[in-house]
Design a protein around this nucleic acid. Structure first.
Lengths: 247, 247
DNA sequence: CGCGAGCTTGATGCCGATCAATGCATGTGG
DNA sequence: CCACATGCATTGATCGGCATCAAGCTCGCG
């Protein structure tokens, strides 16, 4: 692997740390960037970091320095109330950004925990600020990502505020399969990276309820469930549940 | 009122449309800016717009052009599912920003409805992008505002996912009084701008449940409730409910 | 003054929480 | 290789909080 990286020799040594060379570039921050633009973006990602299953990438209260793009693996983010209740606020897979919560107060306001051995690209926030002043497309793309996170959160609020258990689980599964499909995986076969309890804590349900819903979906021929191995037999039925057209 | 505005004569004619002259500048986008910085910011706000009670500032699907800073009045934002259920995603008062949801897709993804006659400052998004490239503090401030919106949303998820009815209403009231207090109003006396149903649709409850909780709080001596006129008699009790220390 | 929107209050029922037992897969040490 | 421990999942029985349905009530306004 010879060095055809541009000017910066130090980075040339860590050849692999480069968006221009990343197979996630169609999913991650640099969506839609040209080769030339990608080269300019490469100074954005300083290093990679490995996070083992069960470990935290960051925790509530940690000082905020960087954003993180998931390269491989799977994370959950979680907020906690003072009396110990917690809420999973999202699950993040390859190409998705972690740490946006920290910008507002210079400290992280949630925990990001790896659900399997994972690797992230470290994006120093100062660097992103600097580059996005020079580089309009990056600025715009970054704003879009933040905005979409807000829109996603609104969708979760709708789910938590107005859907019943089965509808919530159906929406969750459809969301997962869509994102997996965008990454080239089968939309009908998936392996859950999280426990029933983590799903429940995301959907505002208890783990027993999640389990019962899985069983119900299996009875109804919508899913085949073997522990964390899920086959989606009838995606249309899931969609129907989400849209509530059964009512 | 003589014209000491800089270069642009058209804007000089609308003298009042200027952050440097706005009494919300300690609450709104330009928090912490110097006089000189405020002058540079003034080209950001193009016009004002009046929205009467019950009217929409924007609706789901509208093409996204601008952000809006609430100058006077009160708004709710609302998302809807296909089958007609809706979720109020927030209530916005003076100094708060509306429209961030639209950046991600160039279209708004929620409705913003005025709960009383209101006035907003129109911030063309292209202008904001442009200025925040030149103007580091604006860039940083804008990013902070988006990030805080994400953090706020996570708090609402925690509320919707894990709190019981009384806890939700207590959290809601504390949030309202805190924001009103930051605007110079009494923290113990407030007039709700929204109906019980709107509160319920925000908190994931039915209006009857909201009403019952108000009555309960009144019985317990925590509040005095006269329709939309609320006196907070025991803020500590509300705080206790939110932290769940009763359990 | 009377209408209607919004609010309160009561009676009942259901969904999901809770409590509890069992099952199943994985891993570890004897 | 088996015995046992451990973490996670399933399933059942019961309970409780909130939704639902249904009356009245209040207050502002034409």
């Amino acid at each position: 692997m010879n060095n055809h990286a541009p000017v910066v020799p130090i980075r040339a040594a860590e050849f692999k740390v480069a968006c221009s060379n990343c197979n996630l570039r169609e999913l991650c921050l640099p969506v839609g960037f040209s080769e030339r633009e990608l080269d300019r973006l490469d100074s954005l990602v300083a290093t990679r970091r490995t996070v083992h299953r069960g470990e935290s990438l960051f925790r509530t209260g940690d000082s905020f320095e960087s954003l993180y793009a998931v390269r491989t693996g799977f994370f959950k983010t979680r907020v906690s109330s003072e009396d110990g209740r917690d809420q999973v606020t999202g699950f993040q897979m390859a190409g998705e950004l972690l740490g946006l919560d920290g910008i507002g107060s210079d400290h992280h306001t949630c925990d990001a925990v790896a659900l399997e051995d994972s690797q992230v690209c470290v994006i120093p926030y100062g660097q992103l600020e600097y580059l996005s002043r020079e580089f309009t497309d990056l600025q715009r793309q970054f704003h879009k990502i933040m905005s979409r996170e807000i829109v996603r959160d609104h969708g979760v609020m709708l789910l938590l505020g107005s859907m019943r258990a089965e509808e919530r689980l159906a929406a969750f599964l459809l969301n997962l399969t869509n994102r997996l499909q965008a990454r080239g995986f089968s939309p009908s076969s998936l392996v859950l990276r999280m426990t029933r309890e983590e799903i429940g804590t995301y959907l505002g349900l208890k783990l027993e309820t999640v389990s019962r819903c899985f069983s119900k979906f299996q009875e109804d021929g919508i899913l085949q469930v073997k522990q964390r191995q899920i086959q989606v037999l009838d995606p249309a039925a899931l969609q129907k549940l989400v849209n509530g057209s059964a009512c």
